[in-house]
Write a protein that binds this DNA or RNA. Sequence first.
DNA 1: CATCATTTAACAGAGGAGGT
DNA 2: ACCTCCTCTGTTAAATGATG
Length: 252
Amino acid sequence: METANMLEPTPLDERKQQILKAVVSDYTVTGVPVGSQVLAAKYFIALSSATIRNELADLVGTGYLQQPHTSAGRIPTDRGYRYFVDFLMQPESASPGVRRTVRQEFESAPRSVDGILEKAAMVLAQVTENVSLVTAPEISEQRIKHIDLVSLEPQSALIILVLEGNLIKQQVVHLDRPTSQDDLSRMAAMLNRKVKGQTAEELAARLAQLGPDRGEQRRIIERVIESKSCWNCSSRAPSWPASCSRWRSRRM
DNA sequence: CATCATTTAACAGAGGAGGT
DNA sequence: ACCTCCTCTGTTAAATGATG
C-alpha cells in the first residue's frame, strides 16, 4: 500500500481516465503488464502507441500505475485500483431475485446491531457465493457531535453521546455525590464546549491534562471514551465483545 | 504568419523467453 | 552461460492543429 499516495486522488483528465480504466480492465483479465501497443490496438485505435506511452508515463508519475521493469508494460497500483473503483467502475444493478432475497432476509433480521451485521455478512455471502466479512464503523475514530447528561438516580446519570453520522451511544455513570439535573445540564454544556468535534484519542489526551480535583468530569469523560471504543457494549459493563471483531471488512 | 501544444514515427536500449 | 529474437520503453525531431 502506498499510504502517502492514497490520501487524495489526483484529478485525471478524460483520456487518462480511459487509459487507466483500460489498463485495470485488461490487467485484471490477462494478469500480464499492459503495454502501449496493446492499448493502442485494443482500446485506442485513434491514438498512436507513443501518445499512449506519454499518458502512461504521467499515470506512473501520479502513482496510479507502476512498471515492473524498464521494458515491461504497466500494472495498476493500489491507488490505481482505488481510483478505478471509486470513479471508473460501472456499478451493476442487482437482479430482481437478489433484491427479493435481501428484502426477505432483512425483514426477519434481529434488531440488534450485532444481529444486523451477522445477517449482512450472511446475505452478502449468499448472493455473491464468496466468503464475506462485515465490520461495524470504527467509532473510536469518529468525532463527537453532542453530549447530554440525564439524571437517573441521585448518584447515577445517563450519558447520551451523539457521534458523526448520527450514531447514538448511551452509558450509565455512577457519581461520587448526589447531583441534580441542573448540575448535570451545566456539566453537559461545559463538556460540549470542551470535547465537541474530538476523537477518543484527543479526548484521552484531554483527560490526562485534567487535575485530580475534577472527579465527576473525569469519570464522565472516561465513560465517553469507553463508549466510543465499542460499538455495542452494554451500558453497565463496557467491554469489546467477541462478536465485534468477528466481522471485519474493508472497502476494496 | 508566428507561436505553442499535441501527436506521431523512428530509433536505440533494456529485459524476458527460449534455444543451444 | 551465451546468443538471438521479440516486446516494450524513453527520447527526439518532424508534422499537425489551434490560437492570437
